[in-house]
Write a protein that binds this DNA or RNA. Structure first.
Length: 566
RNA sequence: CGGGGUGUAGCGCAGCUUGGUAGCGCGUUUGGUUCGGGACCAAAAGGCCGCCGGUUCGAAUCCGGCCACCCCGACCA
């Protein structure tokens, strides 16, 4: 490819609204361009990267017997109505109607469609297990697209679906996908860790996310310093410290005029945050729920949402406060007329809690004696908490990008859609399923977020837009041009992918662009190297170049590329 | 959807407080000199100052409304 004809130019400066390193480099190196908020166009360089990533995924899916197919972007509303997701997904999906008024969704995902196909194609247990996948655009009307390609509103996902006869079969398929994912991310140069995750809107029981740790990510991952425990904050738990029982007199009211926050209480009473109880009033399904937790802990909304089975956490209103006998700023669990959830972090000590009375708190409030409730785990873990698995390591919390996730949802969809097969015993049974997704554009930018230096991108060779960047210096020199043209032709003949900088630019501009675009090998042909009958070869990741004889240059470079890919 | 911010030439920005008819750097075009780390000289093109309305003799600037984009929060690949 001649760079003089390449569609898409590099940018010397990135727009200021590009915040993360990967977002800035993605724009500067002409990988993709925004068309509207959360909608991006691949430029030729980026499109090549995306295609290489797809090919890696394709090979690994095929390897585990997953078959490629393709379902449409637009899917009819009745499929979604069968599972209840037509309404559930309303706020975050794009919809349209045809000329007859029939409704369609720009698919958010394809569980419904693939189950419809499975029940039509798979009649007998003899046809199970089955796994299929496709690369298809997804539409998600995210409230907040973010950081370039990391969170967009339309993107191509590889989504795979497994169908098994029973739970044991599902576990086998799930394991095969998990293994494929490990190989896929490794091959594209991503150090992705598998973490336990919440099952969220997809339903089901077992789920893993593949997370790449980087500051650009917006997920938070708790990681044990000792064992292999890794979990999304939405799900992470901890080992509670041993709790002593408090021996104390009955609760006593203390006057705390205008003191409504934990910080103010700490200041006023000179005690640590965990000496207080925080009571948060939440709107449940048909009730008011009080969540009680120590002053130093925050409510984990994902855990609470799941527990209450509500789509979002809404705080109680003034009227709700009155109904349960709470006073804003002075709410406490003692005497409250609400469903009370006591977080596992609350132990047997004597706490200071709100008195449900203006300007007053209660001292010496003890769980089990003065109040009680359902014991639940709805708090965020913190740095330094003890690992729930090994009980000895401590948790650290890191930011991550979710590049893939896998769900074993079982019969969640097949039950609702009546998607069944005929079992060996002659009865109809629902498919036991799982789904497995990877976002292509997010993977591209995550690779950039984790492979760059102060000059630009450093592509892993397996996903690089081209393998070798040939630079002619200057390209106006007849001899240089002839030699560079010949090198490019030879390399391409040897199967090497070459970007050829034949532009009439200065050396500085060409080298700066080469570093920015980040192709793994740079081969320079110049008047100077020609004088010695050499070619300069420099890996993008190296600081020093080497000079190789022109005669063997093609062989040497092609060899280096092959070794890099191996 | 809540909070914050920004819209001026292709990109990055100044001008706005205190109204007087738009400027800088980079890029682009032409000619010339250069040619191994974002060259130099000269000339030139390029703007509905986000949109609509108001105030005013006069609005990029003041006022109102709308739109777009970005950041933080809640959700996902």
């Amino acid at each position: 490819m001649r760079q003089s004809t390449l569609f898409g130019r590099t940018l010397r400066e990135a727009p200021t609204d590009a915040q993360t390193p990967g977002h800035r480099l993605m724009l500067r190196a002409a990988i993709a361009r925004p068309l509207a908020s959360g909608l991006y166009t691949w430029l030729p360089l980026g499109f090549r990267v995306a295609q290489k990533i797809e090919q890696i995924i394709r090979e690994e899916m095929d390897r585990i017997g997953c078959q490629e197919m393709e379902m449409p972007v637009l899917t009819p509303s009745d499929l979604w109505k069968a599972t209840g997701r037509w309404d559930a997904l309303e706020p975050i999906t794009f919809r349209t109607k045809d000329h007859n008024g029939r409704e369609f969704m720009v698919s958010y995902t394809h569980e419904e469609a693939v189950h419809a196909h499975a029940s039509a194609e798979i009649l007998s247990y003899r046809q199970l297990p089955a796994m299929v996948y496709h690369f298809q655009s997804k539409g998600r009307d995210e409230a907040r697209p973010r950081a370039g390609l990391l969170r967009v509103r339309e993107f191509v996902m590889k989504d795979a679906y497994s169908f098994d006869a029973d739970q044991a079969g599902l576990e086998k398929s799930y394991k095969a996908q998990h293994g494929a994912y490990e190989r896929i991310f490794k091959r594209m140069g991503l150090d992705a860790i598998s973490v336990e995750s919440d099952t969220g809107a997809m339903g089901g029981d077992i789920a893993h996310e593949f997370q790449v740790l980087t500051e650009a990510g917006d997920d938070r991952i708790a990681i044990c310093s000792n064992c292999d425990y890794k979990a999304n904050m939405e799900k992470a738990t901890r080992t509670m410290p041993a709790a002593g029982r408090a021996e104390a007199g009955p609760p006593a009211e203390i006057s705390t005029p205008g003191v409504t926050t934990i910080e103010q209480l700490q200041e006023r009473l000179g005690r640590a945050a965990n000496a207080f109880l925080k009571t948060v009033l939440i709107k449940g399904k048909d009730e008011i729920v009080a969540v009680v937790l120590p002053g130093d802990r925050n409510v984990n909304e994902a855990k609470l949402r799941k527990l209450l089975d509500v789509p979002e956490i809404k705080f109680a209103s003034e009227a709700d406060f009155a109904k349960v006998g709470g006073v804003a700023g002075f709410v406490g669990p003692v005497g409250l007329r609400a469903r009370i959830l006591v977080d596992a972090s609350v132990d047997g000590r004597a706490y200071v809690a709100g008195a449900n009375k203006k300007d007053a708190h209660l001292e010496r409030v003890i769980l089990g004696r003065d109040f009680d409730g359902e014991r639940v785990d709805v708090h965020d873990v913190s740095e330094g908490d003890v690992c729930p698995r090994c009980g000895s390591g401590v948790l650290t919390i890191k930011r991550g990008v979710e590049v893939g996730n896998i769900f074993a949802y079982g019969t969640y969809y097949s039950d609702k859609m009546n998607a069944t097969y005929l079992a060996a015993d002659g009865t109809r049974k629902p498919f036991v399923g799982g789904s497995y997704g990877i976002g292509i554009s997010r993977a591209v930018q995550t690779i950039i977020e984790t492979h760059y230096d102060d000059r630009g991108i450093i592509w892993p060779i397996a996903v690089a837009p081209y393998q070798v960047h040939v630079i002619a210096l200057p390209s106006t020199d007849e001899a240089v041009r002839t030699a560079a043209d010949a090198l490019v032709a030879d390399l391409e003949h040897a199967g090497v992918e070459v970007l050829y900088d034949d532009r009439e630019e200065t050396a500085g501009v060409k080298f700066a662009d080469a570093d920015l675009i980040g192709i793994p090998f740079r081969a320079t042909v110049s008047k100077r190297t020609l004088k010695e009958d050499q070619v300069e070869l420099k890996p993008r990741s190296a600081s020093e170049a080497e000079f190789i004889p022109r005669k063997t240059a093609t062989e040497r470079i092609a060899g280096a590329v092959r070794r890099g890919l191996a």
